[in-house]
Design a protein around this nucleic acid. Structure first.
Lengths: 283, 283
DNA sequence: GCAAATTTGTTCGTATGTATT
DNA sequence: CAATACATACGAACAAATTTG
């Protein structure tokens, strides 16, 4: 029944953090100070601090000290605003996959920006090949942008197209420049592709090295990324066919996705409610 | 530039795991064996194992040993199948929030089950109160079910209603029994509430104690839960009003949400592509 | 049911390396 | 360069969980 000492120390430190005794960003006592304060070995207080770090409450930096993690306000992204069967409603394209979403970000009083697209031509990863309807390992064109909010890294978005689109007239796909009017308009104009629907897959997974680096996620595998994979379809002569796969990678703990369906209050998504982290509490 | 020894050991073990030298569920060498194998102190190999454990590659159990984590196939859940403005399409209610979703689960060849509802009457958490449009701390009725797939815990779902619904005729809301025909039909029959739309909020957060226990998540704060909060609206005389808030909590690393919009292939959601964990890789 | 053996978990002490100011 | 603070590494001992005889 008796808790190990390092857990007791961790619980005590947690209580002091949550009570506000240590404010966000404040420096914790050094390991030496904690050692004498709790009458434990330095290794033991290190175990306690490590436990808190693994839960994201504190961060340690060599030569500096240990600091209470600053809480980042989650950012609300409207994923889809689907209309009712008979009715009026938001257009098909919206939010995370289709346009740049900049209007929605500005509406929240924050400043979006993005890098110019980086163009990658490579054999398709399996997940992309399957969704894009091309053979495994077939060449695809990837157009990747790094997106920022208020100057801080926010998301990585890569759109993949079959490489044959380039040969069939979509030569600008491999130019590392923005497409005036957007990729959708370009593909419609050059190739006659008109989007009629899309499927989105949402999943949470550990970040890959490049993602962790850009999003400034810790290297300890604690924080995950939320990934939205949008597969876009057009109506070809022979039936529905995918023509684009867009992969958006976001830090999982800093994002709230919103989906509206049918008639909902306001044209825009509601703000996140306070205390979303306490949802579903049971007495 | 030289990597610390515990990282080298961890990298070597990882390579051996990923190469298949240690299969899923296989037992790693004991700490004593690793100590002599790598010529390091036991604490050092423990650091290496801890690093792998923090990334979810292995799990240690006292008295038994350390084992390669078994990969759990993610389960696909269709969140919304929104129809086109003019068109035919799936009905408004579907997937995770509205019905029980059992049909979709059976369609994947798996066996769903659920506990009978547990009824909770308590002051609303802030997030519920705001979304349900009741004063902070007002009494709400919560109906919670524990849901299983193939006998393994899958999700916790709690639907909240204003307590005044009970006084106004919805007395069965506080009975710990299933409502024949579902809660929607019951509310329509007894109170004349017809759902016209809903908003869903999707977020990732650390599990609370009861959630971690039910979902069998490790206690180390590594795995998160994915939470879907659905707010349902009806068209009251005075305008749109929320009447139900449903909170669904799922293990974040075992779920893929699917959203269809417009015309997409098949009536049902596509299977998850292989290697979703490698999405958006850049050469 | 108990005792022994095995294996991981906790705690201590010490020394040295590395990052930052 | 010096001081400070966290990071790495070693060695040792005992505790707790589990299996086995």
């Amino acid at each position: 029944m008796t808790e190990p000492m390092y857990r007791q120390i961790a619980d005590d430190l947690r209580a002091r953090i949550e009570s506000g005794a240590f404010a966000q960003g404040a420096k914790l006592p050094t390991e030496s100070e904690l050692r004498v304060g709790y009458g434990a070995a330095r290794n033991t207080v290190r175990e306690a601090v490590r436990l808190l770090a693994s839960r994201g409450l504190v961060e340690s930096r060599p030569g500096l000290g240990t600091f209470v993690t600053r809480h980042v306000e989650p950012f609300v992204t409207t994923l889809a605003a689907a209309p009712l069967p008979g009715g009026q409603g938001a257009p098909l394209a919206s939010g995370i996959g289709e346009d740049d979403g900049f209007a929605g970000i500005r509406a929240q009083g924050r400043t979006p920006s993005a890098s110019g697209p980086q163009v990658i031509v490579e054999p398709a990863a399996d997940s992309v090949a399957v969704r894009l309807g091309v053979p495994s390992g077939a060449q695809v064109v990837g157009r990747r942008r790094e997106r920022y909010i208020d100057g801080r890294p926010w998301s990585l978005r890569t759109s993949y197209y079959p490489f044959e689109f380039v040969a069939k007239g979509g030569t600008d796909l491999v130019r590392a420049e923005g497409l005036p009017g957007g990729a959708a308009a370009y593909l419609e104009q050059r190739l006659g592709l008109v989007q009629v629907g899309y499927t989105e897959h949402i999943l949470v997974r550990p970040p890959m090295a490049d993602e962790a680096k850009f999003l400034e996620l810790p290297d300890d595998g604690r924080e995950s990324v939320l990934t939205v994979v949008r597969t876009c379809y057009w109506s070809a002569e022979y039936g529905l066919a995918p023509f684009k796969v867009t992969v958006t990678v976001l830090p999982a703990d800093r994002v709230v996705l919103v989906i509206n369906s049918g008639v909902v209050p306001g044209g825009t998504a509601p703000e996140p409610a306070p205390g979303d982290h306490a949802d579903s509490a049971v007495a």
